Structure formats: structure tokens, C-alpha cells
Computed example of a mutant assay.
Amino acid sequence: MSQATLVKFDYPNSLVKSYQYWHVLLRPAQPTLGSLILICKENVEQYSAISAGAAAEQMQVVADIERVLKERFNYSKINYLMLMMIDPAVHFHVIPRYESGVNFNDFEYLDNQWPTPPSLQDELQLSESVRAQLLQLLRDDFGA
């Protein structure tokens, strides 16, 4: 996989959980609370080039992502964006969507784009301590 793509998403600091074929990362810029990056560990730049093992495992990883984010934040919908315009490694931006605000650390975070497509230019203003708390909670929730 592209090391540059990993670095852009602050790996290994942002690592939530590592699977055999995939990493789940906390997205450095949070358009909505709990936004993640799902990145394939294989050195491929086309989704059709991932191995059968990676494709099979992706089903379990997505199920884990949806379970954890639902239990933790009770999202309304979840968006998986595969853009790969700038970062060539096969990866998805996982954006939980909220019809109403979500409370975390005594603050309500809004999904300003609801119900339209998310904007990756939006970024919640999270302090370093709140970001660290979010990362640790997700690591714990994933059992990492």
C-alpha cells in the first residue's frame, strides 16, 4: 500500500484497529464525529485488484465499523466514499451521518450537511485531548 497515503492519514498514530488485510484509522479531519479511514494493506491502486482474502475480510471489517459506530454514536446513516483522486491506495472515507446532533464529551456535534452528501472540507473543531479520547474509546470499542 502507498506509504504516502498512510502518512497523510497519520498512521500509526491514528490506528484504531489492524486486520489481516485492512487498517481502520481515525480520520484526522472529522467532517462528522467518528469519521474513519478504511485502507487496504495490499499494494493496489484499483479496487478490482484487491485479493479475494481482502474482499472477504472487508465484509467483517465493515460489520465491525457499523456495529461500533452505531453502539457508540447511534448514527442515522453511514457513507462510504471511495475517491482515490489524490491518495492512490485503495481506501474509503467512512463518514457516519447524523440527523440530529450527537453528544460526546459534554458537547453536541452537528452534521452540518445532513441530509445532503458530506463535505470532506468540513472539519469539527476537536481539541487534541478530545481527539485522543475519541481514538482511545474507538480502540477499546473495536477491541484493538
Rank of each mutant, 00 (worst) to 15 (best):
61 V>Y: 02
66 E>W: 00
81 L>Q: 06
47 Y>K: 01
92 F>Q: 01
85 M>S: 15
82 M>I: 15
119 S>E: 08
101 G>R: 05
108 E>C: 11
64 D>T: 03
107 F>T: 10
121 Q>H: 11
55 A>V: 00
116 T>I: 00
85 M>N: 15
55 A>E: 15
47 Y>R: 04
95 I>P: 03
66 E>S: 08
79 N>D: 14
60 Q>M: 05
109 Y>T: 02
99 E>N: 10
69 L>Q: 04
90 V>T: 10
76 S>A: 09
81 L>D: 07
58 Q>G: 05
51 S>Y: 08
54 A>S: 07
97 R>Y: 01
109 Y>Q: 03
49 A>Q: 11
104 F>E: 01
99 E>C: 09
106 D>C: 02
106 D>Q: 13
91 H>N: 13
71 E>Q: 15
49 A>L: 13
92 F>K: 03
115 P>F: 04
99 E>D: 11
50 I>M: 03
63 A>Q: 13
59 M>A: 13
49 A>V: 00
91 H>M: 06
66 E>P: 02
114 W>E: 10
72 R>Y: 08
86 I>G: 08
84 M>V: 11
48 S>Y: 04
81 L>T: 08
45 E>P: 00
44 V>P: 02
58 Q>T: 04
48 S>I: 14
69 L>W: 01
116 T>E: 12
112 N>R: 09
103 N>S: 10
74 N>H: 14
102 V>H: 01
50 I>D: 04
64 D>Y: 01
117 P>H: 05
112 N>Q: 12
118 P>I: 05
53 G>W: 11
49 A>F: 09
63 A>S: 14
117 P>W: 09
48 S>M: 08
105 N>K: 03
56 A>H: 10
94 V>G: 04
111 D>C: 06
54 A>R: 02
88 P>H: 07
66 E>Y: 06
73 F>K: 04
58 Q>P: 00
69 L>D: 05
82 M>L: 10
114 W>C: 07
70 K>F: 07
75 Y>H: 15
91 H>E: 09
72 R>C: 09
63 A>I: 01
89 A>P: 01
95 I>N: 00
62 V>F: 03
102 V>C: 07
92 F>R: 01
117 P>C: 10
76 S>R: 08
88 P>S: 11
67 R>E: 11
99 E>R: 15
106 D>I: 01
115 P>Q: 06
90 V>D: 04
61 V>A: 03
52 A>C: 03
94 V>D: 02
77 K>A: 13
117 P>G: 10
59 M>I: 12
110 L>M: 13
49 A>S: 14
78 I>M: 08
88 P>W: 07
83 L>T: 10
112 N>V: 12
43 N>M: 05
51 S>M: 08
52 A>K: 14
72 R>Q: 15
120 L>R: 02
117 P>E: 07
57 E>L: 06
65 I>N: 01
76 S>C: 06
45 E>V: 06
82 M>W: 00
100 S>N: 13
83 L>N: 12
104 F>K: 05
44 V>G: 02
